[in-house]
Design a protein around this nucleic acid. Structure first.
Lengths: 239, 239
DNA sequence: AGAACACTTCGGCCGCGACCGAAGCGTTCG
DNA sequence: CGAACGCTTCGGTCGCGGCCGAAGTGTTCT
């Protein structure tokens, strides 16, 4: 199997608009049924079925039967990471293309706050990352990041004791370029823990049928107090 | 521009075997001419020209004219990283597929040692990463890595003073999953510095027309003494 | 200047694969 | 049990895009 051929196979898999829409819809890590995916790809169930079979055969999705439904999800974090990387490349490919930029078919709600596989992205995700860097909790480099000594205490105070995560001083903390904001947000284990904690606290709520995340009233207060992040105005203003 | 559509566009770009072969051929970061790429993709110059135009328009490649040649290279490290990630996903997609595994069209020389954009990969690359971890020079986690305190001294002794690289203790040091060995090798700035240093020392020599890297006699000694890595036997044995 | 060369554009051919409706299968209701 | 439902398989249509040869443009060499 030549490297080029292997490359072209996954490329072709992602390269069809219907399949790409399905993959994008699944990017938040949830499982969706075949008909939901058919709807979000805007194709007939028959077409969707074929696409999904190919994606499963190609190892990009896994499927689990449940009653008369079949639920599909992204097969691994590798695949999710690949999708994100491809989106970054795609968004950088047309830097000055106003025609494209001018038609932001990405919904305002998604741009505001969404999940990215298992962590937070969008304006909220980037804002949190900025806040954590500004407060000296984490230090982010181009491809790696780490939690500072004082940051450990801050995170523990937020309900995220890192002692149990691992022995090493280095933590699974990774910047992930946000394709809508074009600036890094926080990914990795820490990003996932943060997202889960915000959900536990009732600050955010995942929407049923999309990757969008809504910030609750408690979340508005919490993000402002703890992070100095204004997550509310844009939501309140309906943007 | 919907996320799905953006995704599908770069997917489709990579999804053609001819284009994927070109991208794979350019993965080591060198610039190749249109006819060289036509040859490595095994298509007529006319076809190659069209493919290359699309890859440039899509932002995956950049081109520079030089006399009557046009030299193409991968547009950015982002793109190279995307290709590597896609290869990892591709290689994981068929874990037990012996029919594929049994036809390793990847040449033994490439599997032995090659460049991966700007750093070393293959058996040599993985071996060096292992050696650096074993010697406590670097610590690698799943997605991040760092140079230890004692590692700084070791690297300085190898001719890589890190003082000038940056102020922070954290270094641009990243594990990169090797698609032929399926284990991480060393990437990031450190990986690139290491590769360049080995070339400076005359330990390795890049082949003219491929990503393959040959280990010189001096390199065999050097890798054994400094890293405890046996880079020679396989080469000497012709494997 | 003229020939050789690197590359692109054009035009026509052809095949893969995406699409859908209809029919088939298995599950879950009433 | 039969109807409704979710999904897949089948069969046929169709259009996009890859392919190449030939001709055209620009560059270098002698």
């Amino acid at each position: 199997m030549s490297p080029g051929l292997a490359l072209s196979e996954v490329g072709a898999l992602v390269g069809d608009p219907a399949r790409a829409n399905m993959l994008a819809a699944l990017l938040d890590g949830r499982a969706l049924s075949a008909s939901e995916l058919a709807w979000s790809a805007r194709v007939a169930p028959a077409s969707a079925s074929g696409h999904l079979a190919r994606l499963v055969a190609g190892g990009l999705l896994t499927v689990v039967r449940q009653g008369r439904h079949r639920y599909f999800r992204v097969a691994s974090a590798d695949v999710a990471g690949m999708e994100e990387t491809m989106m970054v490349v795609a968004s950088r490919a047309h830097p000055g293309d106003d025609r494209r930029r001018a038609t932001p078919r990405i919904s305002p709600a998604l741009r505001e706050a969404r999940t990215c596989y298992d962590h937070l992205a969008g304006r909220l995700g980037v804002g949190l990352a900025d806040a954590l860097v500004a407060r000296g909790v984490v230090a982010l480099a181009e491809e790696a990041g780490e939690v500072t000594e004082s940051g450990r205490a801050w995170l523990a105070g937020f309900g995220l004791p890192l002692d149990r995560v691992g022995r090493t001083r280095r933590l699974f903390c990774r910047p992930c370029l946000d394709w809508s904001e074009r600036r890094p947000h926080l990914a990795g284990v820490l990003g996932a823990m943060l997202c889960r904690r915000c959900e536990e606290l009732g600050w955010i709520r995942r929407e049923r049928d999309s990757r969008a995340v809504t910030v609750t009233a408690a979340g508005r207060r919490g993000f402002a107090e703890r992070f100095g992040v204004d997550a509310g105005s844009a939501i309140a203003a309906g943007r």
